[in-house]
Amino acid sequence: MNTLKSITTKVALSLSLVLASGLALADELNLRAGVTEISKSVYDLHNLILLICVLIGVVVYGVMFVSMYLHRKSRGHEPAQFDDNHVLEIAWTIIPTLILVGMFIPSYGVLKEMYNTENAEMTVEVRGYQWKWEYKYVDEDYNNSFSFFSNLATPRAQIKNRQVKTETYLLEVDEPLRIPANRKVKFLVTAEDVIHAWWVPDFGIKRDAIPGIINELWAIVPEPGTYRGQCTELCGKDHGFMPIVVEVLPEVEFDLWYQDKVAEKIALDQSKKSQSDPEFLTVSSGG
């Protein structure tokens, strides 16, 4: 009896060890939770479905392995000859249906929330090009809207293995998209040439950037920080080399940066104006 007890404790101990290390590892292997409310509910949804799949898997594979172990000819098992059972057939049609309904309802709830782009506090137009992103900040006064391109910053030498790769290899740009924390930002996603896709995993949002079509996305990011993503629709030769970097700034810091950018834009427009035809200018300002 004692040996049996010690064996069971040993088994229980090693099982819990495996489970604990499994969970720790699972955290690394699993989807990331992200930083927005949406990305967190997507993460919960993902875990729920994964769990359901694992449970179904345990039952289905379990029965299968038991059968493969017990009902083999080498154990002298005689084959039964039944080939139908209506109760079983109905049961394994109805039970999965109920499980699926249970999965559909929470999924639809999250989806509906994702589609709610109302009450955005600011709007950024995201435009995909072969092979870079352009970000345009749509100001209340449209003339003050400014834009810039965001190009891959990883040097060619790193890609061609002539230089040591840094931690942000292929996930770094010359000028990131900057947005404020805690404000609802709407993204209008489109493209200039072919289809691209704009994805920031930590925000839980992804949408295709399609020429001629404007798609809407939104995010409220509570945590300032740098978040990285990549183009996720094959868009030609350098599809793998047009990353997305979003820098989320504290609100005050963002407002200062934004004012600077707008001032820069107004100054630039004025210097352009003074260079161009003065007669044309008087006409347009009169209108």
């Binding site: 029965v63 009902h71 084959p79 039964a80």
Partner: peptide
Amino acid sequence: FNWIATMWRGSMT
């Protein structure tokens, strides 16, 4: 499920 029920109580090799 049907495939597994086919295996169940068979005489497998």
